[in-house]
Design a protein around this nucleic acid. Structure first.
Lengths: 337, 337
DNA sequence: AAAAAAACTGCAATCGATTACATTTCAGCA
DNA sequence: TGCTGAAATGTAATCGATTGCAGTTTTTTT
């Protein structure tokens, strides 16, 4: 690869002029500008971004921390992030944490070693190691969907999870359901808490008793959905409707219910959360909450860039609207069930 | 962020010693080493990777070019890439090209501007722009799944697509099928060619006529699957079995067949390709080809690192084994159909 | 105890850019 | 023509590391 110096020689100018031709073209006369461009062409010059980053202190990259890359929902977010980042001239460093804190720490530390200017976190864990924690306040961080736990309040892009599950609960209650099961994901997260609160709220309004025993699960996976459905159906009082806290869980649950010889929604209604693409093509298509994942990803980039550029944030929480998609996996309660 | 100099002051040593403490600890006495480490601790020192990259000429990053991030199959590959890269101390820059050549060029040029040391391409297009093409031969590139077109032969990690579709075709022929439809993806690619050849091979063996009119499609999406199924079922001679060139297409096809009142597999058998997770939980579970996507991703990293480190490659094509998963979406031909 | 070898450490150049400051060039005008 | 200020360009310091070479200290050898 050729460097500025070769271009200098070819064009007969100084390094300063070459650099300016790219960064401040208006400060270079048209004649020399052309000469420099031609020289760049001839030498196949590419500015070394790392070198320029060293000097400017900006790497023009963002790290994205994902707990699990194979969840299609995250992908929609990441796609949004990727697009917005590209538009702003930033590149995206991908970090799949596999839920392991050490990996998380390692990836997060890329921001500390100047490899990236900011961090977008798709999980609720505090991503820095204890030893790095005190360095973390200078680091631009935003979280999407989840709120990061810990002392510091990081900006967050999220959905109104409370209202979303409220609307799902109302939808099911209107269909006459009174006996419910819940298959949840990780229980320590804020999301979990909010979603549960939404359901409880509606139950309180409708004077439906809430039974903690009907909450099962523990992770956002198809397998957990299967197991959860089996577990719920083995309870003395079987639910007629199941809340699944994401679509993967719902996929597993429906699969398992069918295997048990139950019909969805004639015997049991199932609702999901996230609206990953495939849910519209399932049999039956899944009633779920559509999250504007793409937009949320874009917003995350916008916000983290604001922090990077010291633009004051208008608010610390960006709440996105959801949309309940009433499809065929939910229906009227079956009185004979 | 503190730099080497602060550490120097605190530890009372030179920059050289600080640098060596991290990169060549054995060349520093234990006493000073400890002193330096303590100083690093106190000052919260993080080496600036960019600076070190400028000097060493290695960015320790790889770019991955993906045509479409939302395809779960790519995700499995990317996950493999990510893991292997992390293990080797490399980070992964993600580039979603959306199939747009300009984006592709822009992302690929990150390797030229020293932002990354190598490129992993998940598509068949030549990723560099015409003006960069002559710079491209110095760049470490490997492709996964697809072969990159153009003069230069880049190393490739792939599946034996020919054999894979042969085995699918045999599977269906053994069930008595004689009338087939094909819903394909992009037709210019090598994959398409190989897969078609596999099917044709079996047809030739079995003396089944091959009808070009029964090939429909044009992209790897659910929607194309839907449309393709509709189209095939409107043909004068309806197929009793459909090859879908990936699982997304199969998902769309099955959905649409059901909508047309047809049963899978009783009326029409459907097979997919890739074995994305959800296919095992569909109704019916999809017969498909399992690709070791994760391993292929890992291999891609291994190969690209070999190129980067000037280790001669043992072969230019790494062919991975497939596995046919005979699930319930395929079955005996229905004589009354 | 002196000489030779080995182990440490430091000085200063270097990587490839950017940029403050200095210098040169030139157009505009009296 | 000569002067002034703006525009164009160059010089050299700088960003934060790495590293060849040289100098110093310690250890080993005889």
């Amino acid at each position: 690869m050729s460097t500025v110096k070769e271009v200098c020689k070819l064009a007969g100018v100084s390094t300063a002029t070459v650099s300016r031709t790219l960064k401040n073209p208006e400060r270079v006369s048209e004649k020399t500008r052309e000469r420099v461009f031609k020289a760049m062409q001839e030498s196949g010059y590419r500015p070394n971004m790392l070198a320029s980053s060293v000097k400017t202190g900006k790497s023009n990259a963002l790290v994205v921390l994902v707990p699990n890359l194979t969840n299609p929902f995250f992908l929609k977010i990441i796609q949004g992030i990727e697009q917005a980042a590209q538009e702003k001239g930033y590149s995206v460093l991908l970090g799949d944490t596999q839920g392991e804190p050490e990996r998380e720490n390692e990836i997060a530390s890329m921001v500390l070693s100047n490899r990236a200017d900011g961090l977008i976190h798709l999980d609720h864990s505090f991503p820095f190691s204890k030893s790095d924690a005190h360095l973390a306040d200078r680091v631009p961080v935003v979280s999407v969907c989840e709120r990061i736990k810990g002392d510091k309040e990081f900006p967050v892009i999220e959905l109104d999870n409370y209202a979303a599950t409220r609307s799902l609960a109302k939808h099911l209650v209107n269909y006459g359901h009174r006996k419910f099961g819940i298959i949840a994901g990780q229980e320590e997260s804020r999301i979990h808490h909010d979603r549960l609160a939404g359901i409880k709220g509606v139950f309180a309004d409708e004077e439906i008793p809430f039974d903690d025993n009907m909450i099962v699960g523990g992770a956002y996976s198809i397998e957990v959905g299967q197991e959860g459905a089996r577990e719920l159906m083995a309870k003395p009082e079987r639910p007629t409707a199941i809340f699944c806290f994401n679509d993967d869980i719902a996929i597993g649950a429906i699969f398992e219910l069918k295997k048990l010889g139950l019909r969805v929604p004639e015997d049991v209604s199932v609702v999901g959360f996230d609206n990953i693409k495939v849910t519209a093509f399932m049999d039956p298509p899944l009633t779920t909450i559509d999250q504007p994942a793409h937009e949320m990803g874009r917003k995350a980039v916008e916000v983290v860039l604001q922090i990077i550029n010291n633009v004051p944030l208008r608010r610390n929480r960006e709440i996105f609207p959801f949309n309940i998609l009433e499809r065929e996996s939910s229906g009227p309660v079956n009185p004979n069930f």
